[in-house]
Design a protein around this nucleic acid. Structure first.
Lengths: 112, 112
DNA sequence: TAGATATATAACTTCTTAGTTATATGAAAG
DNA sequence: CTTTCATATAACTAAGAAGTTATATATCTA
């Protein structure tokens, strides 16, 4: 699994990481701030952050000894766009099927 | 990882499964039809389908010895909604920050 | 009923992941 | 400069995922 979309979706398939992303949607935060809500070790959080960063969903700043993370909303939106695309594809197919049925119906009428 | 959203995102983190979903967006298809585009074994496809079904993203029909799969678009849309929610959260925070800055600016003006 | 076709299941291998503890690095503050 | 605080990295373990081949099950067809 190498492609960018797979990386992002895999990153967001974990509830801890989704919670981190949701937290960062409210503004940037340090590693220790991000750790607080969860009952897991600091290295575990750092690992989660690395996964999110590798996926391009967050980025780091640096303020003294703190490395605040911030959300890359553009990347998040781009990921969500996949769902809309597929849903649109579905709607198009549905519309085409619908149109086809309509047409048949009209034929019936004209031949009546 | 037990929750429904995690299951769906994990299912879609795989490019083969996303391709299957995209194919099903165009209409239902049998296992053998779904297998064709990929260079992997039939059991591997059946496994992917099981993952998608367990996530609630597809469902089975039965026509003779064939078990056509179809997309559950509602479930797909619900999954995509998560991205919008977080993006909205971000926008709200942004707006609040913006309003705060505006307010400060006005104060400055009034005190000038 | 026998053989072919569509799909599922089992057993196994290899790789990845999420977590752990222990330790390193590097800036801040006394 | 030594201690403390924030974070990163390493080494390890346990569990899960994706693929394989071999085999089972069920329906259709001759």
């Amino acid at each position: 699994m190498e492609d960018s979309l797979s990386l992002k979706l895999a990153a967001l398939a974990d509830p801890t990481r989704r919670a981190i992303v949701a937290r960062l949607a409210r503004g940037e935060a340090s590693v220790s701030e991000l750790q607080k809500p969860f009952g897991i070790s600091q290295p575990a959080i750092s690992k989660h952050l690395k996964v999110l960063e590798r996926a391009g969903l967050i980025e780091q700043g640096r303020v003294g000894q703190s490395r605040p993370r911030r959300l890359r909303v553009d990347a998040l939106r781009a990921t969500g766009a996949w769902f809309d695309q597929v849903a649109d594809l579905w709607r198009d197919s549905f519309d085409r099927l619908d149109a086809l049925l309509m047409e048949t119906e009209n034929d019936d009428v004209e031949h009546r």
